[in-house]
């Protein structure tokens, strides 16, 4: 059962920021992740500040330059179903449709999805782990089958979002309302690596709110995709996922990004894999090479060694698929 908290539904962005400026206040957009954390006593919260009335934060729009702007409160289901998104940024639509379950896609927002708390069962459970201010990452010596193989440092979570890797591949920018005014942060710099701070997931300050996410106009020849492998067909987070956004000239890859989900504490851009395909035609050998490159630095924990061949297979298949090979 949920513990007690005060509640306020902000009528303006400014009011929301003001309400969030008090200690123990937490922002609530769709609420699915927040309520789950509160129910599990993951952190304290004395006040829930709802921003669900801020309708100006909803909606998907084509920008004048051919990019896309997505209001942070837009439900994930709408991102998945949006013809605008599908038209130019299919990978994001695919990622959104892979999130959780239909009901949660109707409830969860795109802004909330990139700000999710980790799903590590030690973090969510009754364990005073490093990320909750303790001294130990229980995953390191414990049940770590779903934990990271890349980028682990003191904390070995994987970032749970499906949309964040797709957005990162598509070079998204996060727009943030801050008390001092608004600011923008490239998604590359939005998530906090545990090396920098194992208790934070994003660069957001307590009274900052994500207002929208923008995608640049697609470069010529852009193709994008997202696929995740999971232990079961619904609800589950990625055992391994890969977001591709590659610009082709003919059958040559001229630029682009390859981002892994379920691999690292943050959405993980694999420059090694990118370098293996950019400037080349993707055939079976290139795909295999790129897949191997993506796993070059991977280190398995006791129970997640499977992720290395899994990522190799997945990246290889997805590269071949996007190349139409």
């Amino acid at each position: 059962m949920l513990p007690q908290f005060n509640y306020v539904r902000a009528q303006s962005l400014e009011e929301a920021q003001q309400q969030l400026s008090t200690d123990g206040a937490r922002v609530c957009a769709g609420g699915s992740d927040l309520l789950g954390c509160l129910r599990d006593d993951v952190f304290d919260c004395s006040k829930v500040v709802s921003i669900s009335s801020l309708n100006q934060l909803r909606g998907i729009a084509r920008t004048r330059d051919g990019g896309i702007r997505i209001g942070s409160l837009t439900p994930i289901a709408e991102v998945a179903a949006s013809a605008t998104v599908q038209e130019t940024h299919a990978g994001l639509s695919q990622a959104a449709s892979e999130v959780a379950s239909p009901q949660l896609r109707n409830q969860g927002t795109i802004g909330g999805n990139i700000c999710q708390k980790p799903r590590c069962w030690y973090y969510r459970g009754e364990f005073h782990c490093l990320r909750k201010g303790g001294t130990t990452c229980y995953a390191l010596a414990g049940e770590n089958q779903y934990h990271c193989i890349l980028g682990g440092y003191r904390c070995y979570i994987v970032h749970p979002s499906d949309t964040a890797p797709a957005l990162l591949a598509l070079n998204a920018t996060v727009h943030i309302a801050a008390p001092s005014g608004s600011r923008t942060v490239p998604l590359d710099e939005f998530h906090v690596h545990p090396r920098d701070d194992p208790q934070r997931e994003t660069v957001l300050q307590g009274n900052e709110i994500v207002t929208e996410i923008t995608l640049p106009a697609p470069p010529p020849g852009l193709r994008s995709s997202y696929r995740k492998v999971r232990a079961r067909g619904s609800w589950d987070f990625a055992l391994a996922g890969v977001a591709l956004a590659l610009a082709f000239n003919g059958d040559q890859v001229v630029s682009g990004r390859i981002v892994l989900s379920g691999a690292a504490p943050v959405p993980w851009r694999s420059r090694e894999a990118e370098n293996a395909v950019i400037g080349r035609r993707i055939d079976a050998a290139t795909a295999r090479e790129a897949a191997a490159a993506a796993m070059e630095d991977a280190t398995a924990l006791k129970r997640n060694a499977y992720k290395i061949p899994l990522f190799k297979g997945l990246v290889e298949q997805q590269l071949l698929a996007i190349a139409g090979a």
């Binding site: 539904r9 669900s52 009335s53 309708n55 100006q56 909803r58 909606g59 998907i60 729009a61 084509r62 920008t63 004048r64 702007r69 209001g71 409160l73 837009t74 439900p75 289901a77 709408e78 179903a81 949006s82 013809a83 605008t84 109707n106």
Partner: peptide
């Protein structure tokens, strides 16, 4: 219907989202 009020070039998407007009006492 979700509408972005700030920009004229918003697309009109069919919204399945919830717009909330409730007020609490």
């Amino acid at each position: 219907m979700a509408k972005n009020q700030r920009d004229k070039d918003v697309e009109t998407t069919e919204s399945t989202g919830l717009s909330r007009r409730g007020f609490l006492t």
